[in-house]
Amino acid sequence: MSDRIFGVFGVLLAIGFAIAASLIQESFLSDAVGPKAFPYIIAAILGLSSAVIALRPDPEPIWPPLGQLIEILAAAVVMILYAQLLPVAGFVIATAFAAAYLSWRLGSTILGACLTGVGTSVGIYVVFHLVLGLSLARGPLGF
């Protein structure tokens, strides 16, 4: 079933891709092929392979229970927040929180997670910023 849904989604994606390709504005100075042809070919392959996937599905993949799915989404949300807050909070603070969260969710105790978070953050700061001179996001506190 999963593969059928996946295949149908792929076919829709291919159609969307072809429509988006047809909307490309052609320049008056174009080569013989133009900017649309290759995307059309790609859309065709995408659509064909998706149709095959939908018609001849593989055995069902093992989907995680809902709890684990939420776990992954939550981690993605934390990462998105991290990306957004990085310039605001500065590298060290943002990274310590993000790494601590991930470590906690991967099974550390709260204390262990905090230590991992701070250790990762300070460690990366020292190695990459102080030693190697990489520029990291700077927060209001200067680090």
């Binding site: 990462m79 991290y82 990306a83 957004q84 990085l86 310039p87 590298f91 990274t95 993000a98 790494a99 601590a100 991930l102 470590s103 991967l106 099974g107 550390s108 262990g112 997670a113 991992t116 978070g117 990762t120 953050s121 460690g123 990366i124 990459f128 990489l134 520029s135 990291l136 996001a137």
Partner: peptide, 25 residues
């Protein structure tokens, strides 16, 4: 549980270091 956070954070550092943009992240 210790290794994977480090992997994730080093990935973020690397990509942020190239462009300095949150969009890429």
């Amino acid at each position: 549980r210790v290794l994977m956070p480090i992997v994730a954070m080093v990935s973020f550092v690397g990509i942020y270091g190239i462009s300095g943009s949150s969009f890429d992240l």
